[in-house]
């Protein structure tokens, strides 16, 4: 086996170190299991309207932190692609954005269900264009367009370059759409428009689950992302193009 072939599939420039992947994967799987158990077993204060749904904090909020980590990671690889022209970087940028979007969709859906039975209890409303939810949906559409853009270009290097530049612009919108704009508007989401932010009402014991949950779910993203990168690198090596 030649060194270059080995580099593409495993180590080398931006390849996957399978041994390291396996170790981190096993840690992550145990960690997410621990989060699920801790999220259910550790007692939470029963607050009006929220009741047991306060436990959603451990699962819903990490989805969005994972999306933000994923798209930042994706943008990093886009920059590296623009620097090097190494298609492995393009593969990594794409897979990070894709798995990130999946977490974003899960965040939006879990938020909808949570809102339906708290904010909109007794109203039968599932979607009311709350600014936070609307902006989050727009954010996902912006990243959806990244894939539409990719699918429109045949030549891998050109596709990679244009998509990378778009990806950097997309990242710039993230803090505005997920934080700044929703907080300017009257939203029911915590942290908006004079509502208590997370730090004001969250019981200290919940942080023991919440903070590890951020790390665990970002780790889960990394596992799913790396698995897809491995798959795409095999395809890249066979076809000279990973799409």
């Amino acid at each position: 086996m030649t060194t270059l072939a080995k580099r593409i599939v495993q180590g080398g420039p931006a390849g996957v170190n399978v041994r390291r992947y396996r170790i981190i994967r096993n840690i992550v799987l145990v960690a997410v299991t621990a989060i699920a158990i801790g999220g259910f077993l550790i007692d939470v204060p029963r607050i009006q309207i929220l009741e047991h749904t306060a436990r959603n904090l451990y699962f819903h909020v990490p989805m969005w932190f994972t999306l933000m980590a994923a798209v930042t990671f994706s943008a990093y690889h886009s920059i590296r692609f623009l620097q090097t022209g190494n298609l492995v970087r393009d593969v990594r940028a794409r897979e990070a954005a894709l798995v990130g979007i999946v977490f974003g969709i899960l965040g939006l859906l879990t938020g909808m269900v949570w809102a339906r039975f708290t904010w909109y209890q007794g109203t039968n409303i599932w979607w009311n264009f709350d600014p936070k939810q609307t902006m989050a949906a727009v954010q996902l559409l912006i990243y959806g367009a990244y894939f539409v853009l990719r699918s429109a270009i045949e030549e891998p290097q050109k596709r990679g370059r244009i998509a990378a530049v778009y990806n950097l612009f997309a990242l710039v919108t993230v803090p505005f759409l997920l934080f700044i704009l929703p907080r300017q508007a009257p939203s029911l989401h915590p942290g908006a428009d004079g509502n208590p932010a997370f730090s004001d009402f969250t019981a200290p014991e919940m942080r023991w689950v919440l903070y590890p949950a951020f790390i665990a779910f970002i780790g889960l993203f990394w596992v799913l992302y790396t698995q897809r990168v491995r798959f795409s690198l095999i395809k890249l090596r066979l076809h000279g193009d990973s799409e």
Partner: peptide
């Protein structure tokens, strides 16, 4: 994926230009 990567290493020793 492990098996596929191993098979690929055996079958395509030379790098496909990527």
């Amino acid at each position: 994926l492990d098996n596929l990567e191993r098979e690929l290493e055996d079958r395509i020793p030379e790098d496909a230009s990527y």
